[in-house]
Nucleic acid binder design. Structure first.
Lengths: 357, 357
DNA sequence: TTAAATATTTGGAACGTTCCAATTCTGTCA
DNA sequence: TGACAGAATTGGAACGTTCCAAATATTTAA
């Protein structure tokens, strides 16, 4: 096959009009006669024309590329995968496409992918920054007039829009719930202490404890990697305390699962013998045994919301940074020992994900 | 500040050379004098130049866009998220970027995103097709000389490269393992019967059963949605059989988890009272209680491998379709009732070529 | 010192689109 | 019929790069 690309000029020739007219048709302009439009469209279909956005983009100086960059720090974590899906939904239905990259918490990689995205002319960027990201890293972007929305982790000092969940309020309500169940010694387990999210959640824990009239004890705050393994480690330390806690709020669900593992390894049943509350409400939380009581943050919603925010700024031409914190909701299930004593809801499916291959 | 975009011409002017020279520097050509190169680079940094790949791409007629499209059917499923991460790794380190989109099993959406990617000039596509994808859907792409690699689900009839895991061998070894533990009635649970993957796995089950000298009974094959809920449903039917099985191989891990739930609801302990084997080895498999014996397929590895294949084809200019099935490995944990045994490696990587077109 | 060889540099002419200003059609109204 | 307003259409000239052929600078060999 002679594979020369079909261009707008070929179409024009074949349809007996000028390239300008074809271009007008492409843009859905109302200036062109209905008959001509139909004809042109027919020819396009016939010749198998595919629009060259690169060329168009070149002419339309700047912000019209219809590409948004999405950068996440860990796609392997279903929280962020959900987030990406949320972004994709709105971005896609707005006729944009998403450039998605995973940094795996590497700021070098992050720098690379952002640079690359820029070269490709993204018209906006949504980023869940890698740990220890320098706020100045996004300076050039905003200087170039490219809207940036930071999600999940905020970047103090950066002049960009951001959308984070209400970590403080979430932790407070978790603590309050446990206090309501009669717990007096509640631990805070997991998470890296050098992150803004950790600070927020810890602050929520602290004020939850204090507004309940309990004392805040440093020994009850046990940091660890925000992972399942970290949870196992943290609960180990917690149980070794001379005055051991009877409940824990965890930095996130992964930690909470690890805590459950660690409890069981010591013949303690999560929920019955020790109350556990997570944070995030990842998909597995409701299907786990026992089902995890956790603070639901709806990552997909954040993704959608962030995308909307970004699109708004893109369309507005110029972006003013706005910050929104999204509400958060405690979902009471079994791992805190409250409510349902019914062991498992079998048969009726818990919003099962179709894992299909 | 945010004036006009800095172009290669600005650089040229500022550095006192011609735009051609700057272009040469950009491409790392060895033709340019070391001193000049340094100077040009300095000026670029100083003026904050950003390369315009769109423009470059326009000139370099066709395949040099350095974008690969990645389309998955369900990013929410960690199996596919892992896959995407694998792709991203190799794609990124080869200096490409990935366009990632999620179809959520919708073939319309799939068509849209593929079209969009094409307009953006991807130089290759990796796709895990939505269910019921028509093999002809990718015809135009390959006709245009854009390499396509299909992963996870194969697309019989499409003249594209593909890489799938060795479903047959995996199931066979699962069955063999159960037989070795003394089981005589082994069920096959879960999965939609109208998919190629189901066929392969069922075939593996059947030949596993038969090579063990047992009879193949249709009643022991119980299809269901490939989800946790589906697993609950399937095990329910299995247990209702007059001659009830003592073990089951499951279509995938989600089904296996459901089966465990269902067993427990009937006061049967998975592992002890009934052996369960999954397929996929999702992340949760090893942390579950009991830890799931399953066939490990390493989605990230598939992603990496698929990306390598694609890049090879992109670089080769013209692509001949090749099909590889990746080896798969039974991971023995607790849910089958066996002790810890050294994992057996099964299946071998097979490679076969056929001419594209 | 000069010719030949080698190392560098350089103006256009593309690439496929959009935009602008200008042109050609229609029909309508005196 | 002529003039005039809209409605449709149309040729360039961009956009920011790369490529080519050709020009210029620098060495080397004789």
């Amino acid at each position: 096959m002679t594979k020369a690309r079909v261009t707008v000029i070929d179409i024009a020739k074949a349809a007996g009009v000028s390239k300008s007219t074809v271009s007008l048709v492409l843009q859905g302009s109302s200036l062109v006669n209905e008959a001509t439009r139909a004809k042109v469209n027919a020819v396009m279909r016939e010749l198998g024309y595919v629009y060259n956005r690169g060329a168009a983009n070149l002419r339309q100086a700047g912000a019209k590329s219809r590409i948004v960059g999405v950068v996440v720090n860990d796609l392997t974590n279903s929280f962020f995968a959900e987030l990406a899906v949320g972004v994709d939904m709105v971005v896609q239905s707005a006729g944009f496409v998403q450039f998605l990259s995973n940094t795996g918490e590497s700021i070098d990689r992050q720098r690379e992918v952002v640079a690359s995205m820029r070269e490709h002319g993204i018209s906006g960027l949504i980023v869940s920054p890698a740990r220890a990201t320098d706020a100045a890293d996004f300076k050039p972007l905003v200087a170039a007039g490219i809207p940036v929305v930071v999600v999940v982790r905020n970047l103090p000092g950066a002049k960009v829009s951001s959308i984070v969940s209400d970590n403080r309020a979430g932790m407070m309500s978790a603590v309050k719930h446990l206090v309501g169940l009669g717990h007096k010694r509640i631990a805070f387990l997991g998470g890296f202490p050098d992150t803004a999210v950790f600070d927020d959640r810890l602050a929520g824990y602290r004020s939850g404890v204090e507004t309940a009239g309990l004392d805040y004890h440093e020994e009850l705050v046990i940091a660890s990697a925000p992972s399942r393994a970290g949870g196992v480690e943290a609960i180990g330390k917690a149980i070794a305390l001379t005055r051991r806690p009877t409940a824990a709020v965890c930095f996130n669900d992964a930690v909470a699962f690890g805590v459950c593992d660690g409890l069981r390894a010591r013949r303690l049943e999560p929920g019955a013998d020790f109350a556990v509350v997570g944070f995030d409400d990842v998909i597995e939380a409701q299907a786990a045994v026992p089902a995890l009581t956790t603070v639901s943050v709806d990552p997909q919603g954040i993704g959608r919301r962030g995308a909307q925010m970004l699109l708004k700024q893109i369309n507005a031409g110029k972006a003013e940074a706005e910050t929104v914190t999204t509400a958060v909701r405690l979902v009471v299930r079994e791992s805190c020992g409250a409510g349902k004593t019914a062991p498992a809801r079998i048969g009726k499916s818990v919003k099962s994900k179709q894992d299909a291959e």
